[in-house]
Nucleic acid binder design. Structure first.
Lengths: 355, 355
DNA sequence: GTCAGCACTCAGTACACTGGAGTGCTAATC
DNA sequence: GATTAGCACTCCAGTGTACTGAGTGCTGAC
């Protein structure tokens, strides 16, 4: 009876923002403790925590109310409470910012970026490893999209009598290559000649635009080469133009879940780059930085939570960072790590002018 | 090579090459059945199999003998037998060749290589996926080493006022790139000029040799650029010159093992590219095509078996294929898949002239 | 040498019992 | 009216016992 009234008062239709201070404190305590121990949390345990200041009996009534409102649940009648996805959601929404990183970790990040240099792909790959180390989650790093970038250089390099490699450098520093089989033995000079024509035609264009016919060169054999090069360019497009995904520390999944079947299914998802990339984009598009349980609408990952963080270079979106863990992942830590690494990565990318 | 013969000729104790026909048949039956069911195999079950033709009692005595010789073991007294690593070793050594592939799979391989084209890295990556599909093991594909290959093209491409990208094309079709930060704003023409000098100096050299000082150009600013380019080349060396590793289907590990801890530790190994690459090389160097349990001497993988297969292009070693699974993996199938895919991959690589 | 028969072993399952952690409820207290 | 101590209740986890059945080793007969 009392409960029903309470529900109607506090719960217009599942308003997670309105919990009185004590309920919020207890819920937060349960979430924090459960994240740490992975064991159901009992009322006594919560009452013993500093800062709660009420007896276990009071905690019990509050917990019962929280369960009624869907923030907590019990594995079985005589067990402690564990948070529901809604409980985690409240927790995350009321964190008040990502919070700071441990000094040791801060140091680790600084050191990493001080020593990072050279190739962007390699750096992204290693960044995923760093994130996995920092958070004990599986990390996903999506590289910048080549969508807006234009061709800075295009060149045919002879590798054999009938084989050449088309090497394209984009304005964002990406390099694409494609083997071109030649119909006939082609001397080096003709390749160079064709390269010049291709470059003249394609320089400054985006990969999408380049397919249009190039002007004739006057020499038939060279024209054929140019055409072959353009054809290869077209072949690149669908395959390699999507953002690259780097997954770091998949083994952490086996630490996070103790059901091998869960590990298997999540690993299977991670093997599908396209799925992962679009999942991250999807979460980001919906304005979330954390997707808990079923929130992302992707059934195979209901037992997971995802933290996303855009990486931007001078205001432009230049990639995404993602962290994948169990719903009871350490959100403050994960958010902090994602934010710090995201910022530093953005800086690093803008320093090396990759946009 | 020599090792294999040696091993088979003088065996320390208990000669694995000499088991009488019936023992061999029973051992083979146990291995085959256990590979299929993952359950301990009882004497009755073996006696029921076609081709055995003796009673369960006889099978029992033979099994007891096989256990005494270390080919079989019992999880507990009243259970059936499961093969030991020595048992698997005997099985593999007496397979009499990899055996054929299922027609469906053969078709799958053909189709794959008919549609494979373009980038070598992408092809290797997909090959690892194909192998995982075919064998239900985790597949490892090691790309060709760039060791002997020489520089075919070298070019500085301007990406921003103070940033250039050094793009190096090797004779085997590999493309390496490295960001070069420029001390001052550099016009396009000077980059081109420096590129020409770099190319003249480096063309035909291996990456190892290129570090030597290039002749002066006469222009100081250009010289500085050339030096910066050479410095970047040196920076590439240790990092990226090792063979690339592509891992396909790590989720299969979670199917193969039901202890989540095993999955975790094997996944952790797979995250260390260098370790995996050198492990595969090591097994290959010892002349083995299968390493079972502790045979590879790598403690974290004692519960695994590894199948390796060199990929060669016109007699030259051009990469390695590896399959990783539990010791009770399907050896005939794995060997068959590795052989067929290895051959086709070698053909494909030689067609596209990547050596 | 092979095999049917038999006693034996032991994992797995089912069942009952217990201890303890944790709950919900209620009545007393502030 | 909110808080809390007290209490009865629930249910998991752990333990002990009994039973089953798959599989073994051994033995004696063919």
């Amino acid at each position: 009876m009392v409960n029903t009234e309470d529900q109607q008062l506090h719960e217009p239709d599942g308003d997670p923002a309105s919990l009185d201070a004590r309920k919020a404190a207890i819920l937060t305590a349960v979430v924090t403790e459960y994240i740490g121990t992975a064991l159901p949390i009992g009322s006594q345990h919560v009452a013993d925590l500093p800062g709660v200041g009420v007896s276990s009996a009071t905690v019990r009534t509050e917990m019962a109310a929280l369960e009624g409102d869907g923030y907590l649940t019990q594995p079985h009648t005589s067990a402690g409470r564990i948070p529901t996805d809604k409980g985690y959601r409240f927790f995350v929404d009321h964190l008040g910012g990502p919070g700071p990183l441990e000094p040791v970790q801060r140091q680790q990040v600084r050191q990493f970026f001080d020593h990072a240099h050279g190739e962007i792909e390699q750096m992204l790959e290693r960044t995923s490893g760093l994130l996995a180390d920092l958070t004990d989650c599986t990390a996903m790093v999506v590289g910048p999209s080549h969508e807006g970038s234009t061709i800075r250089s295009i060149q045919l390099v002879g590798l054999g009598p009938r084989l050449a490699l088309l090497v394209v450098v984009l304005s964002d520093g990406a390099v694409q290559k494609h083997a071109v089989e030649l119909p006939e033995d082609t001397p080096e000079e003709r390749l160079a000649e064709a390269s010049r024509h291709l470059a003249a035609h394609a320089d400054g264009l985006s990969l999408d635009m380049v397919g249009q016919a190039a002007p004739a060169t006057g020499d038939q054999a060279t024209d054929a080469l140019v055409m072959a090069g353009l054809a290869s360019l077209l072949a690149i497009r669908p395959e390699d133009q999507t953002e690259q995904l780097f997954v770091g520390g998949p083994s952490r999944l086996a630490t996070a879940f103790d059901a091998v079947e869960t590990v298997r299914s999540v690993l299977t998802i991670l093997e599908q780059q396209l799925v992962v990339v679009s999942l991250l984009r999807d979460v980001l598009d919906r304005g979330l930085s954390v997707a808990i349980g079923a929130e992302h609408g992707f059934e195979p990952l209901v037992s997971c939570a995802i933290v996303v963080m855009p990486v931007s270079v001078e205001g432009e979106k230049a990639g995404t960072i993602g962290l994948l863990g169990p719903t009871r992942m350490n959100y403050p830590q994960a958010l902090a790590a994602a934010r710090v690494v995201g910022e530093r990565l953005g800086q690093r990318l803008s320093e090396s002018g990759t946009l």
